[in-house]
Computed example of a mutant assay.
Amino acid sequence: MRAPLGTFDDARPAPDALDLLTRPVADAVRHWRGTVPARELVHVDTDPEWADTATFVEHYGPELLTTSANCVVVAGKRGGETTLAACVVLSTTRVDVNGVVRRQLGARKASFAAMDTAVGATGMEYGGITPIGLPADWPVLVDAAVTDLPYVLIGSGTRRGKLIVPGKALAELPNAVVLDGLGVAA
């Protein structure tokens, strides 16, 4: 199979790559619902040493920078309550944690979650966290610029591999909220 983005040696429909995904991501692909068929989610095998965006595009091609998105875990706090959420923004932007995220979560304070919290709560590897397969009660905040892309390259739950999905599929994830201005100039 040829991936809809980039040039990868090993690309296959995500339902055919369940053994390469973490359990939560594999379960989400296995039970996929939405207007985009699960077979349109594509897994590409990549070297884990090049998982971070800057080295990834350096190795696999600079054209991927404009079609890549990052998923980061944030923590919103109000009173004694903490709400974990995921934010998906283009890799050329940064998450507006203290503005858009804080207001959307109704939090007094919002910040990036600690690495051990993000990894422990998602069941995914740091540097590979993806919005597909997150805990069912988490808000998934997605920048509108991401959903506007025909295809977007995101994490696969592990540092080895990425998923290429239609941008509109991310808007259909459980608890997804599409927001303008979530990603701001870096």
Rank of each mutant, 00 (worst) to 15 (best):
G106V: 04
D143L: 08
C71P: 06
L173V: 14
S156G: 04
N70P: 02
A75N: 08
L149H: 06
A85R: 00
R160T: 10
D143I: 01
D96Y: 01
P150K: 05
T92E: 11
S156W: 06
P174M: 10
E125N: 12
G133D: 04
V177Q: 15
T158K: 13
Q104R: 15
C87I: 06
G157K: 07
I154C: 08
Q104S: 15
T158W: 03
T82Q: 03
G106Y: 04
G167I: 02
P135L: 13
L134W: 05
V178M: 03
T122H: 06
A121R: 15
P174W: 12
G128I: 04
N175S: 08
S91F: 01
T147L: 13
A144I: 10
I164S: 10
C71H: 03
R103D: 10
K109M: 12
S68D: 02
E81I: 12
M115P: 14
G161F: 05
V177G: 03
T117M: 13
I154G: 00
L134I: 13
S91L: 06
A169E: 09
S111W: 02
G76C: 02
L105I: 03
D116N: 14
T83N: 02
G80V: 14
I164Q: 04
G127A: 10
G127D: 09
G128C: 05
P150H: 12
A136Q: 15
L179V: 11
A118Q: 01
L149W: 11
G161E: 13
P166I: 06
T93R: 06
T117P: 05
R94S: 13
S91P: 04
L105A: 03
R103A: 09
V74N: 10
G106A: 10
V97N: 02
E81W: 14
K168S: 15
M115N: 14
T130N: 06
D148F: 07
M124E: 07
S111N: 13
V97D: 08
V142D: 09
A114E: 15
L163W: 07
T130R: 12
G99W: 02
R78T: 04
